[in-house]
Design a protein around this nucleic acid. Structure first.
Lengths: 145, 145
DNA sequence: GGTTTTACGCGACAATTTCGCAAATTTTCG
DNA sequence: CGAAAATTTGCGAAATTGTCGCGTAAAACC
């Protein structure tokens, strides 16, 4: 993976905001020709710098109107179960993000559900189990960024 | 915003994974003509169902190899400063996600930085201020999802 | 300083998207 | 239930966008 110059950085910056920018739109903002921009973007994709392009969908469409951040603390006396839990969390459709972290907690989840009932069902199904010692639910009131 | 049928749902599902799918690729998987698919996608964009399309960039490219989840607790005696802080957090380039939440904490941040030093600078610049009572840093060891 | 390498812009070509239109399907309403 | 209205489809043409080769210019290397 070769070095990225300021043109590449600018392109990434722009595409990170709007991946549908056209060659000439990029050209205008970057100061290269359309073809040059597209060639660079093509290489950025092939080399894996741009991992993929995704559509951001309004969560209300799927009836997922509620987001919850969950701080999970594990029972550290059962390290064998960790991979199982990992797999389970990755599989759960409600979980849109899941990080293993250091500190007072072990796992931070971002969960999208329709409503409280839905969330409650998720908790019962996934979170209530002996390997999880404690979990703290933080309902998202508003997305600042 | 009209009702979405199964075709729209399938299109969204596909584009959520890969926004660069071409009209005929969509047609093949959805069972409509290329033009019909593209027309529907166009409408989904215009109506805001598809909020935007973004390129996912390998974080290492920008040298941001470290992710931290930060739980922020505010001094609730200064409600006037909330909007200021909001704006400041939204502006900070290190902050990739920022939610206002209920519960034991007030704000949950997702921060991407190069290293500890970088993170420390971020903390000093943004987080160390009278309006913030406390913050808890959870370094991300691994992204499960 | 000359040579090689790399990247650019230009322009032709290919692929993709957009648009108009008639037919088909679905919805509305008497 | 059935006809009129509205919506959506597929097809094909037109427009836009992306890809590629080529000659040239700039940068890197020796």
């Amino acid at each position: 993976m070769a070095e990225l110059d300021k043109f590449d950085h600018r392109l990434l910056e722009l595409l990170q905001e709007n991946a549908r920018l056209t060659g000439s739109a990029l050209a205008q903002q970057v100061g290269l020709s359309s073809a040059a921009c597209l060639r660079r973007v093509q290489r950025l994709r092939e080399s894996g710098v741009i991992e993929r392009d995704i559509a951001v969908i309004n969560p209300r469409v799927f009836g997922k109107r509620m987001t919850v951040v969950v701080l999970v603390t594990l029972n550290n006396d059962r390290p064998d179960r960790y991979n199982l839990l990992r797999a389970e969390l990755a599989k759960a459709p409600e979980v849109v993000q899941c990080d293993h972290v250091t500190g007072a907690h072990d796992i931070v989840l971002r969960v999208k559900v329709a409503d409280m009932e839905d969330y409650s069902a998720f908790v019962d199904r996934v979170l209530v189990q002996p390997y999880i010692k404690r979990y703290e639910s933080l309902a998202v009131l508003g997305v600042i960024k």
